[in-house]
Amino acid sequence: MNKMVKGAIATGVGVILLVGGGGTLATWNQAQQANMGSVVSGDLNLAATNGKWTNAAGTVIPDITAYHVVPGDVLTYTQDVTVTLTGDLMQAKLAVTGAGQDGTGATAFGGAATLSPTTLTKGTQILPDTILTPADSGVVKASTTFTFNTSTTGRTATNATYNLGGIGYALVQQAPASANNS
């Protein structure tokens, strides 16, 4: 039995040695880098500077809340809106959001005032359906005009208010044609 045990142990050691030297069984092999580089995302951003109110005389109004309009007043709000679009397939639309809110009851202008739709211009007018590309990045001029109609009679719309705080801008990416909607 001792001989059999010794034989078995010797066989086991031999097998273990074979297993431990597994690397010695390697054959030819080769590795290559994929060189895929890095994927870099683009950018989409919208930033509005402080706007500026001017009256029909061209006078800058430093604080619109301290200015009171009268019939015949035409106030214009101009603002630079910086659009940033980066990306080879980047496309976006820039639009005006929200609307002015006339006062109610005794504080309403009613038909005595007109608020023109805000226009966006960068060389040419940017319409809601205009597709912007990275080449259109830069400053877009926004302009809104409030007119207190000269046809106002009596004491109509004295002390009225018109809130334009709800007006804003939205820059929304448009899906590239190859988008997978994921």
Partner: peptide
């Protein structure tokens, strides 16, 4: 909202216009 793409919004901060008294 899974189909939403990048978007950014900004307020015009145009304030409130007030009519004068007479």
């Amino acid at each position: 909202g899974s189909y939403a793409l990048w978007n950014s919004a900004a307020s015009a901060s145009a304030g409130t216009i007030q009519a004068a008294d007479f």
